[in-house]
Design a protein around this nucleic acid. Structure first.
Length: 500
RNA sequence: GGGCGCGUAGCUCAAUUGGCAGAGCAAGUGACUCUUAAUCACUAGGUUGUAGGUUCGAUUCCUACCGCGCUCACCA
């Protein structure tokens, strides 16, 4: 018999033994006086004299480590990312409780009552007076001091990662703080949180390939949204002047350390504002979020530091000059010259060429938080033109740690111009650009009722979380990143073989 | 999709030019009533990702496939 089957059988057999002792193998509610983190907070600094064997507690957790010595033993219980030692002594518990103790496996979930004390080496511990069985482990946990290293298993079985690698929990705690901070700040600024469709008859608001699904009753294809933008702006038309949504977007593109097919985006819109208002608001939001999530505006990413209290700022043209990698550094006049642009990029138009050159040469170097503003109109079908430079729009992106983390603009609210932009996109689609924007006549209709001038912005929550948790891959900040299905696991058959 | 790399016991890792697949943890048995990587003794545990090929002999070399990672492309 394979070892794993042997282990499974041993543990499965213990279920009957646990039942014979009068316990349920998959128990019942268990009221505790403290969680383990609470208990450590409250009593972690108390001396043995202060505890005086008089503090009685009732706690629960998963058995993390076991050291048995004859008629006594020490176990560590893990709960909410913290562990606490308990001491079980034959003399100190009932015969039944001691028999239960002898049956325990690493990974079982138990409850205990007892009093707090300090061991000879000074570790805060619970001197157990009674034991309760709450849930049986059948499979083996990862090894105790290397933890779980195999990245595939870490992503597929995140629960094991969370049990074996305490730092992983902290990443997701920080992620939650980031989202909470952004919500709190936007709420304080009078923004209303809403939910708009994830399944859309037209995919708009961004340039990306969509996922397609089908609704049977209506017999129509629907797209998983690539962005909520056009719905949120319909709400601005409807008078919800400050509106935001934090939710998933879906893009049917490549997967990488910076891309997951579903990712979380904050989008917010503010009426009577423009991209300059959005720059000011972004700086404030990101600074405060970094402080709320990490305690400081300065964070370490990889080997380097970045500070969300300080943003550099360049137009896209300036950035190409500033971050040019070679010796033949261009001048600002070069970057404005269609001929020079054409020489340095194979893109069709000067605007597309500028973006291409920027992305190839400058983007990856933007490590400190940096605002890049004034984008070519060709890549910005929903942004308002610059009044003095109609080939450019009032748009900016924020880069940090070499990644784009935000995209914002003055919203285009002229329905005629929006119609022309969509038509421009349609001609690109006809030219073979699969990702070009589609015509959304219903959105044109909404704009035709009049949308107040507005600024809007999207912030990529996953990437922001990467930076604020010093995570090199987006998969480290998404609990269950998309992987290929792994196929037959074989456990169902093995459990069937064990069943009575 | 392209390129590079990885896949050995439940977990973490070894295995010399191609020559008997090993260790620690986890598990079982025994000893041990303040240990904390507990300790000590003994025991068990493997279709080396899958399928082929080369060879007297393959974890090792070759091919294809599966899965994962990095990277390029795409993209945020």
């Amino acid at each position: 018999m394979a070892l794993e089957d042997e282990l499974l059988r041993q543990r499965h057999d213990r279920i009957a033994q646990i039942e014979q002792l009068g316990f349920q193998p998959y128990g019942h509610p268990f009221e505790y006086t403290h969680t383990i983190p609470q208990l450590i907070d409250e009593y972690g600094q108390r001396t043995a004299e202060e505890l005086g064997n008089a503090v009685h507690v009732r706690i629960a957790g998963r058995i993390q480590r076991v050291r048995r010595m004859g008629k006594a033993g020490f176990l560590h219980l893990l709960q909410n990312g913290k562990s606490l030692q308990i001491y079980v002594k034959k003399d100190a518990v009932s015969e039944t409780a001691y028999k239960l103790y002898e049956l325990l496996d690493i990974g079982d979930i138990i409850g205990v009552t007892g009093y707090l004390f300090r061991t000879r080496t000074g570790e805060l511990s619970v001197h157990v007076e009674d034991l309760f069985f709450l849930s049986k482990i059948l499979l083996s946990l990862p090894e105790k001091w290397h933890g779980l290293e195999d990245v595939e298993t870490r992503y597929r079985q995140r629960y094991l990662d969370l049990i074996a690698n305490p730092d992983v929990r902290d990443v997701f705690v920080t992620r939650s703080k980031i989202i909470r901070s952004l919500r709190r700040q936007l709420d304080a600024h009078g923004f209303l949180e809403v939910e708009t469709p994830m399944m859309q008859p037209l995919h708009g608001g961004a340039v990306a390939r969509p996922f397609v699904t089908h609704h049977n009753t209506l017999d129509i294809d629907l797209y998983l949204r690539i962005a909520p933008e056009l719905y949120l702006k319909r709400l601005v038309v409807g008078g919800i002047e400050r509106v935001y949504e934090i939710n998933r977007n879906f893009r049917n593109e490549g997967i990488s350390t910076r891309h997951n097919p579903e990712f979380t985006m904050l989008e917010f819109y503010q009426a009577y504002a423009d991209y300059k208002s959005m720059i000011a608001l972004s700086k404030e939001l990101l600074h405060q979020t970094a402080v709320d999530a990490t305690g400081s505006s300065e964070v370490t990413f990889g080997e380097r530091q970045l500070d969300f209290a300080q943003f550099r700022q360049f137009s896209m043209q300036e950035a190409v000059v500033e971050f040019w990698p070679g010796n033949d550094q261009p001048t600002l006049d070069n970057v404005r010259d269609p001929e020079w642009l054409g020489k340095h990029s194979r893109e069709r138009s000067p605007g597309l060429a500028l973006v291409d050159i920027f992305e190839r040469h400058a983007e990856g170097q933007l490590f400190e938080p940096t605002i890049i503003y004034d984008f070519p109109v060709e890549v910005s079908p929903l942004s308002k033109n610059k009044p003095d430079q109609p080939d450019f729009v009032e748009r900016f992106e924020i880069y940090a740690a070499g990644m784009e983390i935000a995209n914002a603009f003055t919203e285009l609210n002229d329905p005629q111009e929006q119609r022309r932009r969509f038509e421009m996109q349609l001609s690109r689609k006809a030219g073979g650009d699969e990702e070009a924007h589609v015509m959304d006549e219903d959105y044109i209709r909404a704009l035709s009722y009049g949308m107040p001038p507005a600024g809007g912005e999207g912030i990529g929550i996953d990437r922001l979380t990467m930076i604020l948790t010093n995570s090199p891959s987006i998969r480290d900040v998404i609990l269950f990143p998309l992987l290929r299905p792994e196929g037959d696991i074989g456990l169902v058959q093995r459990l069937q073989d064990l069943a009575p």
